[in-house]
Design a protein around this nucleic acid. Structure first.
Length: 645
RNA sequence: GCCGAUGUAGCUCAGUUGGUCAGAGCAGCUGAUUUGUAAUCAGCUGGUCGGGGGUUCGAAUCCCUCCCUCGGCUCCA
């Protein structure tokens, strides 16, 4: 008999070789039906894997991330089985679960396959799933494993096996399909009730572009049809919010092949929005002691040789441009920091001057591979809300606190309620990979951790993720429909102060090297606008939206009165437009609603006679009649409530 | 850059096996209408069907090639 400890610390006694499924059954039939896998002594196991000694276990159902992972991993096997049925002789690469579903990389050899084939594969998968095939784990020797896949002529599996150690190899059999797999898997296929294959794409074997490209098929499964329906609705919603679509519809930005791919054109409304965001941040930064600077769009190649960026990222820059006479080489600015270092170096600094915070909305250009470009989130020319803080090592923590305050304020103002931060530290086993003294690294890493703790941030610490030049703190927000976006970043840098020989004179009258902090709360204006646009589905907060109110005269007869109102609102700093078209009110309202204009003001006989206005709120409907003064006051209160720092 | 898909008026999309197939709705323009909370009516103007080759008596439709876009891969200071 063995003792099984459950998460509530209760201990139950079972025969040796019991499975977590049996444990679940002994608790309740319902739990047994829902259990997908279990954590046994810290490791996720199949629900059917026998437990042979005392163990602490936690059962996973669909509600747990681990349960979903197990289901999706098994679903990948199920898909492989269905594919092997239709395309015998295909070779399988890897088929893992991912954040939302799973994929399998497959070499289809001589077959061609497209998304048109998904339907039949899905149907076959459901058919197999209903057979309730168990997933049977077999631990095999390396020789046995090699034998099996040699017979199958599955070269990819053979390569994977050859990298594994003997004694650690397991196969999983389910129905007619056997796969090399670490597991864990479902007890059987019957809990997979709803299946959708989502997309098909090429993927290099082992992510290496020099190796063969396999066909990757993505899919997702659920234990209930309803959940699949909901998931597909979420994808639809994401499609509706796509910033590329909304950007076009709301006339915020555009691209032109003639101008060049990946080079956004900001249309009047988009430019208005972006400038408002910039002004907003400038105001906050001014309060936080930043100094605004400006630097040119090109810089001498030597500048980037000095910074080290040319060597590391030269291939990702546009080709240098040359002066016709001297043959001097210039690069389109790929980043602002070297310029800011040179500004720091313009004059000598005392320790009393620090920190010096130089800020710039600096437009930079990077050569992104053509296949990588994507709307505003991945472009070849973009503007960073950049700043570089030059400070003493003992000031790092305080500066982090201050930057965190700015980021939190921005998130609050723009209604990003859900976010986590990631602290990236150096790999403790590979300290020689990094530049800068042990002492400084330790100081900076502790400063970041302390700052995050003091601000009560939800934090994930990842070792080995730091840049070679310093540790960093990244902000990852969850948008309105649950997707994660990495936005702001704060990074410590020991490298550039070294390379640019930055100095300050300490109280000891000796020269010291300042620490540099890079930070960009938005990341880039382009990316941030894209994320914000998708987050709010085009309904920007009132203080930010390009047009706050639109006047809708019932007919031409009320045009004169409408223009009077327009003038009054505009001099009250309410961004107002007027719909002068000869259209019915219903049409004007519809168009204003689609343009996501927060307030529609309807003006007809009644309003003109009484000298007031009727207000309709976007998405809500008629609010009734107000005086102009009341409306102005209402708007001002709403705006001020939103942006008080 | 690589694999796959796609590319038809400003926008969203129809176009059967190559043969009045250059279309619709919206937008735009003109006129009528003078309008009360999500589309008033009528008429008109828009396109060398992504570019360039080729096959054919004949190509939006078939083939080749290049380009953009989309989904991934790789990359991302």
């Amino acid at each position: 008999m063995i003792n099984i400890t459950l998460p509530d610390n209760s201990v139950r006694i079972y025969p040796k070789g019991t499975t977590s499924l049996e444990v679940a059954k002994s608790i309740s039939e319902g739990l047994a039906r829902n259990v997908l896998s279990a954590k046994v002594n810290g490791e996720v196991w199949d629900a059917l894997r026998p437990i042979n000694s005392d163990a602490t276990i936690k059962l996973f159902t669909w509600e747990d991330a681990e349960g979903k992972a197990t289901m999706w991993h098994s679903s990948a096997h199920l898909m492989a089985e269905a594919i092997e049925f239709f395309y015998p002789g295909v070779k399988f690469g890897i088929g893992p679960n991912i954040e939302n579903g799973f994929y399998y990389d497959i070499d289809f050899v001589d077959y061609t396959i497209s998304s048109d084939d998904f339907k039949k594969i899905e149907t076959k998968m459901l058919e197999i799933a209903q057979k309730k095939n168990q997933f049977i784990r077999k631990e095999v020797s390396k020789t046995e494993a090699l034998d099996y896949f040699t017979k199958k002529n599955d070269t990819y599996k053979l390569e994977l096996i050859s990298d594994l150690e003997d004694g650690t190899i397991s196969l999983y059999e389910s129905g007619n399909f056997v796969d090399l797999c670490r597991g864990p898997h479902l007890a059987d296929t019957s809990s997979i009730k709803a299946i959708k294959l989502l997309s098909i794409a090429g993927a290099y074997w082992r992510g290496d572009e020099k190796r063969k490209q396999l066909t990757r098929i993505y899919g997702i499964t659920f234990p209930k049809q309803k959940e699949l329906t909901e998931y597909l609705a979420m994808l639809e919603e994401a499609k509706k919010r796509d910033h590329r679509k909304l950007g076009k519809e709301l006339e915020l930005f555009a691209f032109s092949q003639k101008v060049g791919m990946g080079l956004p054109l900001w249309l009047p409304k988009g430019a208005d929005l972006r400038m408002r965001l910039e002004e907003f941040l400038k105001k906050v930064q001014k309060k936080a002691g930043y100094l605004q600077v400006m630097t040119p769009h090109i810089g001498n190649k030597e500048l980037y040789v000095t910074s080290g960026h040319y060597e590391k990222y030269g291939k990702d820059s546009f080709q240098p441009i040359k002066t016709p006479e001297e043959g001097e080489e210039f690069l389109l600015k790929p980043m602002n920091c070297p310029h800011h270092c040179e500004i720091y170096n313009i004059k000598p600094h005392s320790y009393k001057d620090l920190p010096i915070r130089l800020a710039e909305f600096g437009t930079v250009y990077r050569y992104e591979q053509s296949g990588e470009l994507h709307g505003l989130t991945r472009v070849r020319g973009f503007t960073q809300d950049d700043a570089h803080i030059f400070c003493r090592p003992d000031q790092v923590k305080e500066e982090f606190l201050s930057v965190i305050d700015i980021v939190l304020y921005i998130f609050k103002t723009l209604d990003f309620k859900d976010f986590v931060t990631q602290i990236s530290l150096r790999d403790p086993n590979n300290k020689e990979k990094y530049i800068g003294s042990d002492e400084n690294w330790e100081k900076a890493e502790n400063a970041i951790k302390e700052a995050a703790t003091e601000k009560g941030l939800k934090t994930v610490v990842v070792e080995g993720e730091a840049a070679f030049y310093g540790p960093k703190l990244d902000f990852i927000v969850k948008d309105a429909i649950g997707r994660n976006w990495q936005l702001g970043t704060i990074q410590v840098d020991y490298n550039l102060p070294e390379r640019f020989e930055l100095e300050y004179t300490g109280s000891d009258n000796q020269k010291h090297r300042p620490v540099m902090i890079h930070r960009a709360p938005f990341g880039s204006m382009e990316r941030f606008v894209a994320v914000l646009l998708e987050h709010c589905a085009g309904k920007f907060p009132l203080w930010l939206t390009p047009v706050q109110a639109i006047l809708l005269p019932i007919s031409e007869k009320y045009m004169e009165y409408s223009k009077k109102v327009l003038h009054l609102l505009n001099i009250s700093d309410i961004r107002t437009e007027i719909d002068e078209r000869n259209e019915k009110t219903g049409k004007k309202i519809r168009d204003a609603e689609l343009q996501r204009i927060p307030y529609m003001i309807i003006l007809g006989e009644k309003e003109e006679a009484e000298g007031n206005i009727s207000i309709r709120k976007q998405g809500e409907g008629d609010l009734g009649t107000f005086t102009i003064e009341e409306f102005v006051k209402m708007i001002n209160i709403e705006v001020n409530n939103l942006i008080e720092f």
